[in-house]
């Protein structure tokens, strides 16, 4: 029984970056629509059971309800066994519960923030992250049906291996020597006192940047690295930028539609396992684009590059592998059992 988990974040795509930048507006109805397509793709690929994160809007139940009875797939659907908190922790708990319940692939809808939370709970189970958020470096823009098919073939064992599923990197935030949090793309030290509305748009507050990756086509803080010294998603290294003194400057799209000069002092490559200490406290740490961690005066905090991030599905490779093995080929029409999947 192939099981897939769906984590659709009802809060993604709504925050203040619709005001301070030009972030995509993702209303929940569109997420419902995307989930419909994912479900149909999953079922077509042979998935029989879907676990979903319960949420206050009911994205997945609404998706099912809205499918015409003609199309409703024979999926065994169940909410992941978590206590709803209506905070971002739900994504992490749901991921963990799904892994526990035997999910073999997780599909997520959200932005970098959502992916970060899922990564904290998904263990070794591969993730296919779809973009419905704001800063979307980790998740991909992908049509829901294709996403469902790709996750489906992975969950059904029709695609796999190192070409299809790869380990992403991550940053571990160490507070007084102990892991306290995780980021997938960037950890940024801000001269600020408040988590407030979470987004970052005032580059004047940047003090340090640590990146797992950064490419010139990225949007968000990682774009700065993309301009200075690009690092690919799977290259075993990272980048640290110090923004203290305004020695040099670079133009970068740090948020949707916000392409601004960023001043910096220097930057350098970092190696796996290397810890970058936070130079000055108190401060605020932003993780994957959102102010997240309050660092009090005197706390010892550092940011470590690790290679054991979440396993991610390369949807193109997955579907190519399935196609190559003839997974979606059907018996000749005459012999075909009407309506049957392979």
């Amino acid at each position: 029984m192939a099981t897939v988990g769906i984590i659709a974040n009802p809060a993604s795509g709504k925050d203040i970056r619709r005001l301070v930048a030009y972030g995509t507006v993702f209303d929940n109805q569109e997420k419902v629509n995307i989930v419909r397509r994912i479900l149909l793709g999953l079922a077509a690929a042979g998935v029989s059971r879907v676990l979903y994160m319960p949420d206050y809007y009911g994205i997945v139940p609404r998706a099912v309800e809205g499918l015409s009875s003609r199309d409703r797939p024979p999926l065994d659907l169940a909410a992941a066994d978590i206590r709803l908190t209506a905070t971002q922790d739900d994504s992490m708990h749901a991921a963990a519960a799904m892994v526990e319940a035997g999910a073999r692939c997780l599909v997520t809808l959200g932005g970098d923030g959502t992916s970060r939370m899922v990564a904290k709970g998904c263990g070794d189970v591969p993730v296919l992250a779809l973009s419905t958020g704001t800063n979307n470096v980790f998740p991909v823009m992908l049509e829901g049906t294709a996403a469902g098919l790709a996750a489906g073939v992975v969950a059904c064992g029709a695609a796999g291996g190192p070409d299809v599923v790869r380990r992403a990197k991550k940053l571990t935030i160490l507070k007084n020597g102990r892991p306290a949090d995780t980021a997938l793309i960037d950890a940024v030290v801000l001269e600020d006192s408040f988590v407030g509305s979470r987004a970052i748009w005032d580059v004047g507050q940047l003090r340090q940047i640590v990146l797992t990756r950064g490419e010139p086509h990225n949007i968000g803080i990682s774009a700065i690295g993309g301009q200075l010294a690009p690092v690919g998603p799977f290259e075993p290294r990272g980048l640290a930028v110090a923004c203290g003194a305004p020695v040099a400057a670079v133009l970068a799209p740090i948020a949707p539609g916000v392409v601004v000069p960023v001043t910096y002092e220097h930057y350098r490559e970092i190696a796996p396992g290397e810890e970058v200490p936070v130079a000055r406290t108190p401060c605020i740490l932003a993780l994957d684009g959102e102010r997240e961690v309050e660092v009090r005066a005197g706390e010892q905090v550092s940011i470590r590059l690790d290679l054991d991030g979440p396993a991610v599905v390369d949807h193109k490779a997955a579907l190519a592998a399935a196609a190559a093995s003839g997974y979606f080929r059907l018996p000749p029409p005459a012999a075909q059992n009407p309506g049957r999947k392979p």
Partner: peptide
């Protein structure tokens, strides 16, 4: 709906939830 800010899009103005 859950997020009333979603309605802003229908009027072509920015909306945000805090």
């Amino acid at each position: 709906i859950v997020d009333i800010a979603d309605r802003a899009a229908a009027y072509g103005i920015p909306g945000a939830t805090v």
